[in-house]
């Protein structure tokens, strides 16, 4: 554990909590892509199956359980509890265009051709593109509430901190997880355009982020 990894995990947790509380308090999931949240729930489910097979640390186990619970609770709020506020017509990204290539790639490019390893690889590849329905939705409607942009900012910051964590681990432990690093770089690139808009529009102005 290093400071980049810990801060990264905390940003990830903050992002998920921001989103959950936003929906819970406003009793609305307007502007939120339910598809992205289902994909993240699928990411955590397929990655954390090792909860049943290996123990790493109390921290690791607790964080995994918290992420899983919050991911499913968010999906529950969007699709069941506050379903009437869900903008399904704007959330029109075709997730099969992500799931099929990601599933195919995880069979082709993995560390070991074993069920748990393939599912872990699938979760890594899927996480790198899971935010696309949300970014697509913002591009389509041309705006996002500032709280939604704070959620995306912390999610992007988590990714950027994980890159720093890998640089650190490479130099201190000789750690290099090729699949995670390549996917992580791809994922972080998706946030660059958003980061630019966040700093130039959201933090300087107030209220919603509108696209030019």
């Amino acid at each position: 554990m290093n400071i980049f990894r810990l801060l990264g995990d905390m940003c990830h947790l903050v992002a998920i909590i921001i989103l959950f509380l936003k929906i819970w308090r406003s009793k609305s999931c307007a502007g939120i892509s339910g598809k992205s949240q289902v994909l993240f729930a699928l990411v955590f489910t397929t990655r954390y199956l090792d909860l049943f097979t290996s123990f790493i640390s109390v921290y690791n186990t607790v964080m995994k359980v918290v992420f899983l619970v919050l991911a499913y609770a968010t999906v529950y709020l969007i699709y069941l509890r506050f379903r009437s506020t869900y903008n399904s017509e704007s959330d029109s990204f075709r997730v099969e265009f992500l799931l099929v290539p990601v599933a195919g790639l995880s069979f082709l490019e993995n560390y070991a051709f074993a069920p748990l390893e393939i599912l872990w690889t699938f979760s890594i590849y899927l996480e790198s593109v899971a935010i696309l329905p949300q970014l697509f939705m913002i591009t389509k409607t041309g705006e996002a509430e500032s709280i939604t942009t704070h959620y995306l900012f912390f999610l992007g910051l988590y990714r950027a901190l994980y890159l720093a964590n890998w640089v650190w681990r490479y130099h201190t432990e000789g750690f290099f997880d090729q699949i995670a690093v390549v996917s992580g770089v791809v994922q972080t690139i998706f946030y660059c355009d958003f980061f630019y808009l966040y700093f130039t529009k959201v933090l300087r102005g107030s209220g919603k982020m509108t696209l030019p």
Binding site: D9, R47, N60, K64, Y111, A112, E117, Y162, N165, F175
Partner: peptide, 10 residues
């Protein structure tokens, strides 16, 4: 020594 199959990150 680090084992690639451990997946110790979240």
């Amino acid at each position: 020594e680090y084992n690639i199959y451990d997946h110790d990150e979240l």
